[in-house]
């Protein structure tokens, strides 16, 4: 399934549920190439997910071309530069659909104060590191209720790490199934500790501050679109579609939403080419 990326009327970056939904709809309009950094389809839904397998088979049978394990690097409006183990390759396309998924908010996005010690880790990174099966921490504070919060908490607890989640009850109604403790989200968050993190100071809107000792802060708040193809970062080119919604979260619904968004985008740019 992995091959050199082919020139196509439409190129989709991202082979998760959204990217597959976009591709499925675009196939009605013209040839489609789908690119993903990792060598399988499925994105965060996982390649072993039966739904992903079905959806992938469907778009493959309808002629979609896949270039997996390859990274879209730059786009100039006519050519997408793609990096792969065999080199850099120009892919001619007039239409780019970017379905590159979400990332957690950074300390700057979240206006986090204090120090920048070791042990403050984006949830996406924590998930990868914890999958090595090594216990990294004794007590992790997970900030926010993004889609990574629960999987990271479960990996932590499996390895013997205590988990405190900082999120409002309404946002994590099932928290007790996967965390040891919950603290309401606060107006301000400050990281304490110089070489390694020693705790998190949480300050409420009325000015009450409490310190929670911990040896890791996992950033899982405020999911936002991840954008990193140079030349395709802002929504000023009508021939570039960004489809990176924070909702819905289930793979099936994400696929459907992507197909709908692609359909209406195709109408705005003048339908099938």
């Amino acid at each position: 399934m992995t091959a050199r990326a082919a020139d196509a009327a439409y190129v989709v970056v991202g082979a998760g549920p959204s990217g597959l939904g976009c591709a499925s709809e675009l196939l009605h309009a013209g040839p489609v190439t789908v690119i993903d950094r990792i060598p399988v389809t499925g994105g965060t839904a996982g390649w072993e997910n039966p739904l992903i397998k079905d959806l992938t088979r469907d778009v493959v049978s309808r002629g979609a071309h896949f270039a997996l394990g390859q990274t879209a690097v730059r786009y100039d409006g006519a050519t997408l530069t793609v990096a792969s183990p065999t080199g850099f390759q120009p892919v001619a396309t007039r239409h780019l659909v970017f379905a590159g998924g979400l990332r957690p908010g950074t300390p700057a996005d979240l206006h986090i104060d204090g120090y920048r010690p070791a042990g403050v880790v984006p949830a996406t990174v924590a998930e990868h590191l914890l999958r090595t099966g090594v216990q990294l921490w004794t007590h992790a504070v997970i900030l926010g209720n993004g889609p990574w919060a629960r999987p990271v908490a479960e990996l932590c607890r499996k390895l013997g790490t205590r988990v405190t989640v900082v999120a409002d009850l309404a946002d994590v109604p099932d928290w007790s199934q996967w965390a040891d403790k919950r603290i309401d989200a606060t107006a301000r968050v400050r990281v304490a500790g110089r070489d390694r993190i020693s705790g998190v100071e949480l300050t409420t809107a009325d000015g009450t501050t409490s310190l929670t000792s911990c040896d890791a802060l996992v950033l899982a708040a405020d999911p936002r679109p991840n954008r990193n193809v140079v030349g395709a970062l802002t929504e000023d080119d009508p021939n570039v579609l960004f489809h990176q919604p924070t909702q819905p979260t289930s793979p099936r619904l994400r696929y459907d939403a992507a197909a709908r968004a692609t359909r209406s985008w195709l109408q705005t740019i003048g339908g099938p080419s």
């Binding site: 920048r116 880790v121 590191l129 004794t138 040896d215």
Partner: peptide, 16 residues
């Protein structure tokens, strides 16, 4: 080193 002992900064490791 490994995932726990690798240094995140010049002063501290990723893991505890």
């Amino acid at each position: 080193t490994g995932p726990r002992d690798v240094k995140q900064t010049a002063h501290g490791t990723v893991g505890q």
